[in-house]
Nucleic acid binder design. Structure first.
Lengths: 187, 187
DNA sequence: GTCTATAAAGCGATAGAC
DNA sequence: GTCTATCGCTTTATAGAC
């Protein structure tokens, strides 16, 4: 029983993990209460809009993290090939750690294939759009043909890698997908 | 108000579509009742085990369909390259139609990234295992190196293509993923 | 700011009439 | 085989004490 977090921003990552583990509908208030160590009253104090406001805050938090750790390093100077290579290599590293080799799901990805997409469509689309745009920049610097199409392909391989790794209960499937993507870019 | 289906086997595809649209938890008995046009009593008559038995029947039905239309054509004679090429080409065609360019989700895929995986793990794993095994056979006939790894990559690209097409609300993303996979195999 | 108690609605599942 | 009525439980959200 480590810590009852006392600020809204400290609660958000805990909520994020609960949503990843149980899904949006599956994460009941009782579960979120247990996960955060906060009572119902406290949760509604921080998030008057209830679960929907919590999920919105979680999606924003996720996007901020990816912006800092994944997207920003990809938006390289248009002449610096070494920087582009490093940005993409760093992306593979960060993504493998973040998704824990497929043991952890991508919340925007899960929302995209569920009913949650209707409610959180802009946040879900923005997450993947920013990722695609940033990766397209780096691939373009490397001189890859059809860089946007290639970026979509790489991100799809990552998302599908999560699905298959979980379906087969084999993290090596995710790691293999990352390794193959690296190899295809000579990284 | 077309038809209230009267046999268990006629109900299963309707249930499948309801589960795809609403998810396992989201598909309430009321929704399944409306979708099938059957009353609660009838549904429980056909599926005494309730929702869990319905989902099990749906997963079995999906697997049968893929076995007939996708997996079987991939399990080709070890010397017939033309047959292997046709099996893979047919897979891309059938998959694009079945998933409706990403407008329709893959239920085993959705279950794999959600809590449903715990309950339906064997059915989910079997679906993807059979797909991988069958595609590996065809790729091996074509002389592709590391055919199993390649099969996993292709299936992951399809699953990720669904996720991205839905996230961006753009079926062209899915079609592009299929086209790229075709091109990479000279099909 | 945090808690408990509770309201109001929806859930899956069952019973029993027909 | 199909229906309606209903049970018992869980859900989200709110109210009000502290």
């Amino acid at each position: 029983m480590p810590k009852p977090p006392t600020s809204r921003e400290a609660v958000v990552p805990v909520l994020a993990e609960a949503f990843r583990e149980h899904g949006y509908e599956g994460a009941s208030m009782a579960i979120l209460q247990d996960a955060t160590g906060l009572g119902r009253g406290s949760l509604y104090h921080f998030f008057p809009g209830g679960k929907e406001e919590m999920a919105t805050a979680v999606l924003a938090d996720i996007r901020t993290w990816f912006d800092d750790h994944v997207f920003a390093p990809l938006r390289t100077n248009s002449t610096d090939r070494a920087q582009a290579r490093e940005g993409i290599g760093s992306m593979f590293d960060e993504v493998r750690r973040y998704y824990r080799s497929g043991r952890r799901v991508c919340l925007p990805g899960v929302f995209a294939v569920g009913r949650e997409r209707d409610r959180f469509d802009t946040a879900v689309a923005a997450y993947f759009s920013q990722w695609i745009d940033a990766l397209t920049i780096a691939l373009n610097v490397l001189g890859i043909r059809a860089p946007r199409q290639h970026a979509i392909h790489l991100i799809a391989a990552i998302q599908g890698g999560i699905t298959l790794a979980r379906a087969l209960d084999d993290p090596a499937v995710f790691d293999g997908a990352i390794a193959a993507a690296r190899t295809s870019l000579d990284l």
